[in-house]
Nucleic acid binder design. Sequence first.
DNA 1: GCGGGACTGTGAACGGTTTCACAGTGTGTG
DNA 2: CACACACTGTGAAACCGTTCACAGTCCCGC
Lengths: 230, 230
Amino acid sequence: MSNSPPIEQADRLLDAFITPMTETRVPIPTLERLAIYLRVLLDALEAGIQTLSSQEMEQHSGISAAQFRKDLSYFGEFGKPGVGYSVPALIQCIEKILRLDKEQPILLVGAGNIGSALVGYPNFQAHRLRIAAVFDNNFVKIGRPFGDLIIEDIARVKEVNASIGARLGIIAVPASAAQEVADLLVEAGVRGILNFAPTILRVPPHVHVRNVSIVQELAVLSYHVAEETV
Amino acid sequence: MSNSPPIEQADRLLDAFITPMTETRVPIPTLERLAIYLRVLLDALEAGIQTLSSQEMEQHSGISAAQFRKDLSYFGEFGKPGVGYSVPALIQCIEKILRLDKEQPILLVGAGNIGSALVGYPNFQAHRLRIAAVFDNNFVKIGRPFGDLIIEDIARVKEVNASIGARLGIIAVPASAAQEVADLLVEAGVRGILNFAPTILRVPPHVHVRNVSIVQELAVLSYHVAEETV
DNA sequence: GCGGGACTGTGAACGGTTTCACAGTGTGTG
DNA sequence: CACACACTGTGAAACCGTTCACAGTCCCGC
């Protein structure tokens, strides 16, 4: 897998994440930024850039150079003083940290509009995120094709995931059904849920939930655009 | 418009937002939570609940009672000691704070999968968010119907918005076109942009941008689901 | 092989949010 | 009318994340 010039550095880097450094919890904002760095790095790679300094990262990502270095310091040492960061090596490191180095199967629940947008989403592939199965509770939809997949009965989610082994799930159903779906996903072994439904999900402590709320985002913007008028 | 029991209180509350209290900037996390409170309150209203304490809000929203009270304190005093908060009155207040009390027209750019999901999104209506026009640059799509609307040429966005007067825009186009679209939106008078494209947009300081990145969300979850395995 | 320049990694200072704890206030009851 | 109760609103403390600034390291040229 990739014999980029600085082999030994790459190996050193790839091992780094194994040691979770100290016992320090990694701040969630840091994880979110990691994904941004990765995007910039992938663009840089495409542009043929081999090396990047934290200064240059600041220009491309809008995140301060100090922040970038601090974020990486939670996981190890990835740069060379006087030079910067090897683009391909750092990509591999961040991918490994975020577990995007191996394909991540994902269960999608809800074969509606949002679900359609997700299965057709082109950016998943670059990050090895793959929607491995689609579920719905509408018997009219069950059995129909959906992208490359066939819509399955949500009642069978545990059964289906026994062979897939996905740890991530996406809930794209109406709010009224979301909690029920969450319970089924958890029972099927899912540990991380991306929730598009406007509800607070109750899940066991070992399950992580992230909510995507378009209305919430627009509400914050709505406040800001008016603020400046007053 | 609603003559709920505590009329005089409602009026007192509605005036409160006019005074931006002190010069204190409202924290963005507070604004984000405001939208969550609003959702809980609307659910409560539907369930016929007239009064809510900060304790009950904590149970329904997952946000601590102290946080809830502190958040509201940025805008005024909305509760009655010993009783709690009037649900209908507080709904009106938060709507007014977030400028969701009057219809907010929104320009949508990108008539693809995400765009489809957005025009069909049922939750917008409850918050008086309305997609007032849809644009694309693909001449095959221009002129076609899209939900209740007709897809217009992105080149005409300024012209079209002269009559709509929207201050909010949504970018749902590929990353390669996002910056160009952002520039056009800003020129058309948009002050707040919700960006679905995986790029950092450069905009003038008076324009607010919020990014929605599904990949980023999944990346954070991906980290967490693996973390607990080690 | 040595010196200068460039850039990283990180402890310490800073600033902003969240949490705490309690004083203040309205309500209902006897 | 007075007391007990319930709950709010808010200064102060605690916590966390960001920013700063510099010591340490590496590379390159001479």
